[in-house]
Amino acid sequence: MILIFVFYSGSVPACLFPLATLTNGGDEQLFIDTEKIFTSTKMEAADLHLNIDYVGTSGTVLSPEQKAALQTSLVIQQNRYKFHRIYFWGKILGIKDDYFIAQGTQKDEMAECKTLYSKDCVNWGLLPPATKAMREKSKLAKGRFTGDPSHEFEHVQTKKSADGEEGHEEEETILIKEEDRLASVIAEIDEDVKIVPRASFIKTPTGETLSNRCFEGLSVSEAAKLCSYMHFREPKALFEKTLLQKANLDKSIDFLDTIEEDIPKGCWSLQFERGSGLVTLRSLWWNGFVFFHVPGSRRFGHVYVGIGEKNLDLPFML
């Protein structure tokens, strides 16, 4: 028996399917549930009430009123904007009010993603896409979000004039609209810390990024390694790898950057909750970002509940 077992694990077609775990039970029901499970990954609106419990241990809880409102309003938004899927993204805490954020995606989850925000979980507004200039500008804003999208942050910059005369300085006031800052911060968070388990998404030959139907969850030992999690963004570090490093990669699965190479080392806090029944990853760069995955299942997702400021003190704090 042992012989066959070993033999089998060696003969999994590695290029087509992810090296999923060998599980005894559940195989028969697997493909019946595929569509059902399919929709329950990430913090999707339909299963919000279930998935939010997974991050409760990190202090992220929605009040019953909010849950109820989200269940109603997100479905309406999905229909209105014709999203393929809609996710509850998180909450950004302001001084007077909080922003609830939802993201809707089309079939290719990487390419098309729109962000909605709301203050009461009922009425939603579309955020403008964060342009590069907007993101640069909003980095200048200091202090907490207020909760009023039309609020303007001021940033005074002293500029030396080009005349060359010494002491001639001009003061320039840059106004940053809170709505723009919100869009930029969300874009930053997505770029920095939005992660998915390895092999949960595949890249098709046509270049689309689709959710991998064959993904059956990471095994417990895989889930304990940072290299099993990948940044869900256009890869950056991948192109810098040597040919030798790339030799073992599977093109359809390893098309993203792993979080193992994130700087500084230790900027992710990986913990097992409930023994090994639930793995949570907290980003220390963005305090409040929590990723969860139930090993051996398709359940994973992330949520951000925080003040929307990057923790730049991290190098001192480790």
């Binding site: 077992f5 089998y8 399917f17 005894n24 028969e28 697997l30």
Partner: peptide
């Protein structure tokens, strides 16, 4: 769409012995 998966599952299920000394 999912015929490959089904095929794979059928193949895999053949290897699952009910009495596994390892497990």
């Amino acid at each position: 769409d999912i015929i490959e998966d089904i095929s794979r599952d059928v193949k895999r299920s053949k290897f699952n012995s009910k009495v596994d000394t390892v497990q």
